[in-house]
Every structure is written in structure tokens, then in C-alpha cells.
Write a protein that binds this DNA or RNA. Sequence first.
DNA 1: TTGAACTTTCAGAAATTATTGAAAATTTAA
DNA 2: TTAAATTTTCAATAATTTCTGAAAGTTCAA
Lengths: 168, 168
Amino acid sequence: MEFEKAKETFIQTWGTLGSEWGINRTMAQVHALLLIAPEPLSTDDVMEQLRVSRGNANMNLRDLINWNLAERVIKAGDRKEYFRAEKDIWEIARRIAKERKRREIEPLKDVLKELRKVKGDKKDAGVKQFTETVEGLGDFVDKMDKSMDYLLKADEHWFFGTLLKAFK
Amino acid sequence: MEFEKAKETFIQTWGTLGSEWGINRTMAQVHALLLIAPEPLSTDDVMEQLRVSRGNANMNLRDLINWNLAERVIKAGDRKEYFRAEKDIWEIARRIAKERKRREIEPLKDVLKELRKVKGDKKDAGVKQFTETVEGLGDFVDKMDKSMDYLLKADEHWFFGTLLKAFK
DNA sequence: TTGAACTTTCAGAAATTATTGAAAATTTAA
DNA sequence: TTAAATTTTCAATAATTTCTGAAAGTTCAA
């Protein structure tokens, strides 16, 4: 495959995958673009390469920064801002995990904790099933969350080394 | 919190979480409804409790079956079909993991394998960064995929037991 | 067979989400 | 200061996704 075609495919694939996982397609595409860029890119580079508006490029670049997946780079003697993505895949995975945990798992844990206190007749089948489901889910989320904490502290080699050895 | 309010909150929360993870909100809500239902529900039950159309209810119930998260139940002497969700959270997690792996990770692996064969001057910075990114990503996805295979074979107690012990 | 009960389909409508582009705000060199 | 360069905002618009509801399809008891 030619390089230009491969780039295009990579950006498209990453964008599609992103939207399947609830991430704005363009944000994922901008991320892909930065991942394969050997040098930091400007907003204009992103606009040109992905054919999107300035507003859109700006917004998605800022979102990537909020996800801690990209950073601003200032070049001496240049008014423009440039953007560079973290390139280490393990580090990217950790940052995404950390962010989703903070944005989605922690609030879920809080809701489930509240729901465990539901009032109702424990003899009632509906109440009984509700309680069991919420408790089962709460325990599972807590375990996942704890596992995630270890993952966030671990380095890649140790993590996969231990994991793949443990589960051989 | 009152039972009815708790039910409502649970369904809403599960629906929101679903859409954050790229799953149709209504499908997640139907799933939530089935998860807390002590008995299998009919299409009409779903329509009534979630206030959605017959077409919508039917479609999302079928999707849940395609995800292997719900099954049809036939009651003797009743023409209607009923639906019951798998209630064991560990089993649900495994089925979702299995399905997303099949739908998303396997195709991604294929694309990355193709992209590794990109033609281009290895001295070119763009080609070099592209190759490194794609290779790093490919290796990472392979490891994740392998870990997932173990997870899919494991049972919950063993999985969390080993994992939480290994990473203490 | 027939027809009532039930399920599925799908074109059009509605709702949601993403994008544009121009104006406003900000920054910085001179 | 000034004004040019750049970034940010956001109302309007577009694109995408989801939902509705009625018609078509299927099943089954009699």
C-alpha cells in the first residue's frame, strides 16, 4: 500500500473506531493525524489535512488536550500554536482509562451506592431482583475500578508480563 | 429513595452510560429494564415502561439478542414472546467483551496488519513515524487481544482473585 | 383454510450530535 | 498604544442517528 493511502486508511479507521466507542469521529481523526505526524501540527495543518473548519479543528484539538492526549507546543519566533500527541500507546491507554474512570465510572459508583439504599418490601420480587442486580453490579464495578487503579500505576512491561504469565 | 424512583434512576443511568460507550441509549435502557425484572417481559411491557413505539421496542430487543445479552422465552399457552436478560454481571461483561472483540478488535487487527506493509522511503520522517505508530499500536492491540482471550475463558472468582493478588 | 394475535419492516419524521464560518476576544510585535 | 495575527465562541446549519407507526409478514388455534 502507498504511504498516502495508508495514512488515509489509518485516519479513517481510527475515526470509525472512536465513534464506535463514543468518541467524536473528528476528535479521533485529529488524534490519528497527530499520532503519525513526526512534527507538531498547527490548526491550519489539521484544517487542511482533514478538510474541516477552523472552529471544528480548534474545538477538537482542545478536547484532545482536555483528554490529556495532546499538548500545545510553542515554536520560537512563531505566533502559531502547534500540537503534539503522546505517542506511547501504553501511556495513551492509561490516560484514556484514567479519564473515562473519572468521567464515567466514579459517577456510576456514586449512583449505584445511592441505589443500594432503596426503600421497599424485601419480600417483593421486584424489589428483590432490583437489589440483587444493583448489588451485583456495584461489586463488579468496584472490582473493575480497583483493577484499573493498579493498571494506572503499573508500567506496560510489568502489566502484560504479570498478566499474561498469570493467565497462561 | 423510593423503589419506583430508584428503578427510573437505574434505567436512566444505564442508558446514559450506554450512549457514552457507543451503545444505543434505548437498547441500554431496555437492557436495564430486563436486568431488574424478576420475570421475563413482553414487547408490550417494554413499550409501556419505557414509553417507546412497538417498532423501537422490537428492534432493540432483537439487538440485545444479537449481543447475546437477552433471550426469548416462550410461555406455555401464550402466543406472546417474552424476553429475559442474563443477570450475572461477570457473564454480561464477558459477552460484551466477546462481541466487541469480534466486531471491532478483529477488524482493527486486520487493518493494522495491512498498514504495516506500507511502501515508502524509510529515511522519510513521515514514513518512519507512521511505521512506528502502527507497529506500536499493533503490538498493543495483540497483547490486549490475547489478555481478552484469557478473560473470556476465565471465571470471575479466578480472574479477580488472580488479578488483584498479582497487582497488590 | 381462515382470521386473530403477534412480530417485523421500513419510509418518513423527530431528535440528537457535529460542523461551519464569521464575529468577538485575545495575544503579541513593533 | 496600535493593529495584525491568531484563537475562541456560538448561532445557524448540516449530518447522523434514532424513533414512530402503519402496513406487511408470520404463526397458530380452531
